[in-house]
Design a protein around this nucleic acid. Structure first.
Lengths: 183, 183
DNA sequence: TGTTATGTTCAGTTCTTACAGAAACAACCG
DNA sequence: CGGTTGTTTCTGTAAGAACTGAACATAACA
């Protein structure tokens, strides 16, 4: 009896697939992820093929991608030659890994480009001042976000969870910030 | 003399377009946004068409989308019948608006679905326990993130900026958290 | 060492989405 | 009220990405 047979599980998998597409992750990859997340045991690639109706090759590629994100890993099952796969079930862990990987793939190269452009523009006397200023500001902004992320990422998970739960109340610790805006 | 003529400006616009595609935003939309962001004056649709080499219709749709995100707005220029467009230049403001809109479009519906599925699964005795548990946990997790976001969003911008600059140091305020992990 | 089971890579196809151009529509102006 | 200017909607096409099936590679087993 496979997970996908339950209509709610199926709904979840399909929705997760669509979610993926909206965020630039291909449908198969996110469906495979959803399926593994719901499964209580490690699944061999063939089972995924059967349950999702995807081509073997597609599943293979998808699993590779999910492993690159670090949210799925291969496990060995006693007495079975085939590779089996399990998804990370700690959701906080899952989120941080996805964010880390996307930053690495997409944000870091952007910062690099912005750094290069700012540097060039700083030397270029003929450059329109507002172009220089806007690109520099974008560079600073994204870099600041990046630095913040790196720092927060380094905090122990329980601290992060506590901070999350605190929500807007963290503002209390900011000198001169007064009460959080109520609106 | 148009912004796009400068090679660095052009590089920025092209890169921004590619960035967009990776995050599920169409290329034209993000290119238009980049161009307006770099421009020091409001541009009519025609100028955008010329500078980016896109079809008129495409630009029109793109501008509509950017206005829906709240990061571009229409302005009237004295003595000119045409609509002109400017981008939000406050980057913090820009980011929060994009996040708000994406949450509205993609995250909120997901939370709604998860709520529905959890509720159904809670009533369904035949449901596999791990499926019920995993979906419920996902629901709780994303809801928590949503709540956190709503709270932080309500804070005044200067407070947010201060918090950002604090980075990992906010952990100091968490009772029992000790020093931030150095790793 | 051949044979079978398993996993990966690749070329071609299908499907989706972006995009252009035309036509319809609306606002403005003389 | 007709012409002019600008915007939106619609339909077909082109570009790109996802996906398949088959060929290829690898590892276990007999």
């Amino acid at each position: 009896m496979s997970v996908i047979d339950h209509p709610d599980a199926k709904a979840f998998v399909l929705h997760w697939g669509e979610m993926g597409t909206q965020w630039g992750v291909n449908r198969s990859v996110s469906q495979i992820h959803a399926l593994l997340y719901l499964s209580d045991r490690a699944l061999p690639a063939d089972d995924i093929v059967d349950q999702l109706g995807l081509a073997r090759s597609n599943v293979s590629t998808g699993l590779k991608e999910l492993q690159a994100y670090g949210i799925v890993r291969r496990v060995h099952i006693e007495g079975d030659r085939r590779d089996h796969f399990v998804a990370e079930t700690d959701l906080w862990e899952m989120l941080t890994r996805i964010v880390a990987e996307r930053k690495r793939r997409e944000v870091d190269p952007t910062i690099a480009l912005l750094a290069e452009l700012s540097a060039k523009l700083a030397r270029d006397d003929g450059a329109p001042p507002h172009v220089r200023e806007r690109i520099t500001r974008m560079h600073e902004f994204i870099s600041t976000l990046g630095t913040w992320y790196e720092q927060v990422r380094g905090l122990p998970k329980p601290t992060l969870v506590t901070l999350m739960k605190l929500g807007g109340k963290v503002a209390r610790f900011i000198p001169g910030a007064g009460k959080p805006a109520q609106k």
